[in-house]
Each structure stands twice: as C-alpha cells, then as structure tokens.
C-alpha cells in the first residue's frame, strides 16, 4: 500500500495546473476510484444518495478516504489520485454536473465558465489552411 504520507485531507497539495495520472496516483486512489466506479450503477447511486456515510463504511473506506469524500473537494481528490473519468459519478450523487465540479476546481462559478465557453456555432476550417494541401 502506498499512502503518500497523507494524514489529513488538508495535507493534499493542489498546485496550479493539471495532474498527470500515474501508477502512483492510481495506487493511492485505488479504493476511491473503486467507490466512484461503483456509482456508475443506478442502484448504488440510490444507496449512496440515501446514506453516503453507510455506503462508505460498507465499502470499507479508510477514515482518511471518508474525510476526503466528506470534504467534497474535487481538486484535492484529483491530486490525491481519483481519476477524472470516474469522479463525476460521485459528484453527480451530490447533485453536481460535470461543469459544476469542473468549475469548482477552477475556483469559478459554473455560469461564468459556461458563458466563456459557448461553442462557436461553426466549424473552424479556414480555407486558407488548404493552400499547402491542394493547388
């Protein structure tokens, strides 16, 4: 077992920028990823939403891991080793969308994020790009 020497959730550092998910993250976050993965199933989400303390206890999370879930600090979870491809299922159980927990990591309100990122409504294919291609 690896534990990265974390004693408290507050020990998890969250430097700016992304996390490169390595084997070390994967091993640290193994049980956290497993519980998130279990929440891909609706029947488990129902149980989690009803009483997530019980769900975590039944799942056998450590005190540290339970504390991490209670914190709902998605940025710390990511830095600890929770994969972005499963974390959303837990966030969803707390009523949060992808944009909600994503903008939380940015320290931004979801609507701010959405307003800045509206799709362009057109394809980005300047014909100029073709000049090298075909003459």
């Amino acid at each position: 077992m690896t534990d990265r020497h974390y004693k408290k959730v507050s020990d998890i550092k969250t430097p700016p920028g992304p996390v490169t998910f390595t084997m070390e993250h994967s091993q640290n976050g193994y049980r956290m990823n497993a519980i998130c993965y279990s929440l891909k199933q609706e029947k488990n989400r129902v149980k989690f939403k009803k009483d997530y303390e019980k769900y975590m206890a039944d799942f056998g999370l450590s005190e540290f891991e339970k504390e991490l879930v209670r914190s709902r600090d998605w940025l710390k979870m990511i830095h600890y080793g929770v994969s972005p491809y499963v974390i959303g299922k837990m966030a969803q159980c707390f009523g949060l969308s992808f944009i909600d927990w994503g903008s939380y990591m940015r320290g931004e309100a979801p609507q701010e994020f959405i307003d800045r990122n509206v799709p362009l409504l057109k394809n980005y294919n300047p014909e100029d790009n073709d000049k090298k291609g075909e003459e």
Binding site: P16, G17, P18, V19, P84, I87, M105, N117, Y124, N129
Partner: peptide, 23 residues
C-alpha cells in the same frame, strides 16, 4: 478535464497540429 485549468482548449494548436499531422 481536471485541475485548476479545467476546460482548457487550444484551438490554434489543434489547427496547427492537424497541419503538421497531415504534412
């Protein structure tokens, strides 16, 4: 999709990449 720059998109790079990738 994670970290403090969640949502980062680099469309100019994507476009440049598609050029390089082709030629």
């Amino acid at each position: 999709l994670q970290g403090t720059e969640f949502g980062r998109i680099e469309l100019d790079w994507d476009n440049e990449f598609m050029d390089k990738f082709e030629y």
